[in-house]
C-alpha cells in the first residue's frame, strides 16, 4: 500500500544548485539544459531490496570493521543514529543506509587522497546497515577530521560523513552528507553553500544528542533522513500498455 502510486515530484528548490561557481568542479559538470520532467513510472517506482543475510555483523561498526574486530580505530567515538522517513512522515523500513568518511585526521583510505594526515591502520572508512521496522538505523564510528581540498585558495571541508540511501524505489535514491553541530567550517564551505535554502542546509547538521550518548563510551549525533514520498488516490491511472 505504501509503495503504490507515483512518487511526489521533487521540489528542486530544496536541493543544491547544480551550477555553483564557488565549487569549481560543478562548472563543467552541471547540465546547461533543463531536466525533462515527467510523472514516475515502474522504472522509478520499483527498486532493489537487500536482505540481512548479505550484511556482516560489524558492517555498521566503523570502529572495528576494518580490523575485523581486532583493534579499535583512533578518534572520538560517536554513535550516528536516526530515522529514515518519507515525505508522508512514514518510516522507510528495511532500507539500505551506507556511509563513508575520512579518519580522525581527515584522511581517506583512497589512492587519490595524499593529505599529510596519516592513515589509521585500524580504520577503513565505510559502513552499512538496514533500517528496522521503525525506519531506525545506527552506526558506531569515530568523528572524521576536517580536511583541506583543492578548490579556492584555502578551502577546508567541515567534518562530515557521506550518506547514501535507497528507499524502496530507484526514484527515491539520495546521497547527502551529515555535518556536525557547531563546526565553524560549515559556513565557509562552498559545497555546503550549494544548498541556497538555509533551513534545508540546517537539516544536514546533526545535533549532539546527549540522551543517546553512553557514559564513559561514546557521544551521539542524531541524523534523520527524509526521502521522497508517494501519492495515493482513488483516481490514479492504472499502469497499462503491456
Amino acid at each position: 500500500m505504501i509503495d503504490q502510486g507515483p512518487l511526489i515530484p521533487r521540489n528542486r528548490e530544496m536541493h543544491p544548485l547544480a551550477y555553483y561557481p564557488d565549487y569549481k568542479t560543478s562548472v563543467a559538470r552541471s547540465p546547461n539544459l533543463p531536466l525533462l520532467s515527467m510523472e514516475s513510472g515502474p522504472s522509478e517506482e520499483t527498486g532493489p531490496t537487500f536482505g540481512h543475510e548479505r550484511l556482516g555483523a560489524l558492517d555498521n561498526n566503523l570502529i572495528l570493521n576494518w580490523s575485523k574486530g581486532a583493534a579499535p580505530a583512533i578518534g572520538e567515538r560517536i554513535l550516528m543514529h536516526g530515522h529514515v522517513l518519507d515525505e508522508n512522515a512514514r518510516p522507510v523500513r528495511n532500507t539500505l543506509v551506507e556511509i563513508w568518511q575520512a579518519n580522525a585526521g581527515g584522511r581517506y583510505r583512497h589512492k587519490k587522497d595524499g593529505y599529510l594526515a596519516p592513515l589509521d591502520p585500524n580504520f577503513g572508512g565505510c559502513g552499512r546497515t538496514l533500517t528496522d521496522e521503525n525506519g531506525y538505523y545506527q552506526f558506531l564510528t569515530i568523528r572524521p577530521g576536517a580536511y583541506p581540498w583543492p578548490n579556492r585558495g584555502n578551502d577546508w571541508r567541515p567534518m562530515h560523513i557521506h550518506v547514501s540511501v535507497y528507499g524502496h524505489s530507484f526514484g527515491q535514491r539520495l546521497i547527502t552528507q551529515m555535518y556536525f553541530e557547531g563546526d565553524p567550517l560549515i559556513d565557509r564551505c562552498p559545497i555546503a553553500a550549494t544548498i541556497r535554502n538555509r533551513s534545508q542546509l540546517d537539516r544536514l547538521v546533526a545535533p549532539l544528542d546527549m540522551a543517546f550518548s553512553r557514559p564513559l563510551d561514546f557521544l551521539a549525533y542524531k541524523f534523520d533522513i527524509v526521502l521522497r514520498g508517494r501519492r495515493q488516490t482513488m483516481f490514479e491511472n492504472k499502469l497499462e500498455g503491456m
Binding site: 530544496m14 508522508n88 583512497h110 587519490k112 572508512g125 547527502t176 559545497i191 534545508q200 521522497r228 514520498g229
Partner: peptide, 29 residues
C-alpha cells in the same frame, strides 16, 4: 508533509563507500 533531505555531492571518494574493491579496499565487506 516533510521536505526531502537535500542532496550533497558524492565527492571524489564515493567508491570507498559504495564500491570498496574498485576503490582499492577489497575485503571491506
Amino acid at each position: 508533509y516533510l521536505a526531502e533531505t537535500p542532496s550533497q555531492t558524492a565527492g571524489p571518494y564515493v567508491h570507498i563507500g559504495l564500491m570498496p574493491t574498485y576503490a582499492g579496499n577489497p575485503g571491506s565487506y
